Simulated assay, not measured.
Amino acid sequence: MTKFLLKFMLLFLLFSCSSSKKAKFDDYVFHTKKEKQSYLSSYDKALKLWDIPYTEENIKTSFGTAHVVLAGPKNGKDLVLLHGMDASSTMWFPNIKSMAKNHRIYAIDFLMEPGKSTLRSKPLSKEEIVLFYNEVFNYYKLKNFDIVAASRGGWIATLLAAQKNNSIDKIVLLSPAQTFKFIDKMGKSSSALMLKLFPSEKKFGKTLKTFSTHPEKISPVYKRQFYLANKYAKSNSSMLKMTPFSNEELKSIKNPILVLIGDQDVINSDESLVKAKEFLPNSKTKMIKDAGHFLTIDQAKIVNEAIVNFLD
């Protein structure tokens, strides 16, 4: 498939799946109440995979309602979790026990994706994304907190860290999408784009094999939620604004940063680690063997140990 055709598919997908108009029931992501309810039911089931005590809160912001899942000791260091595209905060089920052992967890659902956060305005600009998260951070009075972020969440974490006078301490980037470079293997990742256009469970299975080296490790409960996210949600409008950061922007980030990428990732490659090491002044990088883009699932034990050791 030619690069031109892939770019055309991407543009068609993004514009056809996005809209600044309000749905009748005042929700940006889903088209009908039935779709939303079906998805939220699957979300609740998947969140139970965390298998630790947690609470859920809805925080009013200028842009809509932020849904936050809290866990871990209240006296632990604050740790914000930013999930990957369409994955929601439930995606942390293989990792949450180790991260919540010594940290107070704040897992935030992104407004413009499937989850329990609800956008009440037009799609957000980069500047508005920063304002949204800072409103949540200010609500919880978060200072000197850490961030662990995956895929699109990694791009958002980098965006937040590039802002002057931020309150972030350490950052872990798990195969951050479009952060150091554009998608590495566009041909292979096109299956995800096609899934958005023509959703089916058969195609979904193939997509998981593209992004994961061990799709058998993905819980059927979570797999169902992730499929419904891809089937129902029209949440890709912000992808066009997700451009890699300039060398100058990366150099401005002084936070200690750990960058982890799977050796079989279709989003990133060695080039991403090279650029991170060269332009992030205080960074460590590591390639995770036998892992794809879903490295938190493919090699959960290794990734969990790397995260905890870095944060501690």
Results as ranks from 00 to 15, higher is better:
203 K>S: 15
120 R>A: 14
54 Y>W: 12
246 S>A: 08
227 Y>I: 03
242 M>N: 06
249 E>G: 07
187 G>M: 13
139 Y>M: 02
232 Y>N: 01
169 D>E: 13
125 S>D: 08
252 S>E: 13
178 Q>P: 07
97 K>H: 13
3 K>I: 15
153 G>I: 03
21 K>L: 14
148 V>P: 00
58 N>K: 15
156 I>R: 06
197 L>K: 12
82 L>P: 09
146 D>K: 01
215 P>T: 00
78 D>A: 15
202 K>C: 07
165 N>V: 14
182 F>H: 09
45 K>W: 04
52 I>N: 03
76 G>M: 01
230 N>W: 09
193 L>P: 11
67 H>R: 13
195 L>Q: 12
205 G>Q: 13
98 S>T: 14
303 V>L: 01
136 V>T: 07
303 V>T: 12
235 S>E: 05
47 L>S: 05
61 T>S: 07
34 K>R: 10
263 D>S: 05
33 K>I: 13
217 K>C: 00
61 T>Q: 02
304 N>E: 09
69 V>H: 06
251 K>P: 08
4 F>A: 12
173 L>I: 05
69 V>R: 07
169 D>G: 10
117 S>K: 05
198 F>W: 14
12 F>V: 12
305 E>A: 12
93 F>N: 11
302 I>T: 14
66 A>M: 07
113 E>G: 05
14 L>I: 13
279 F>Q: 08
266 V>R: 00
7 K>W: 15
213 T>V: 03
190 S>Q: 11
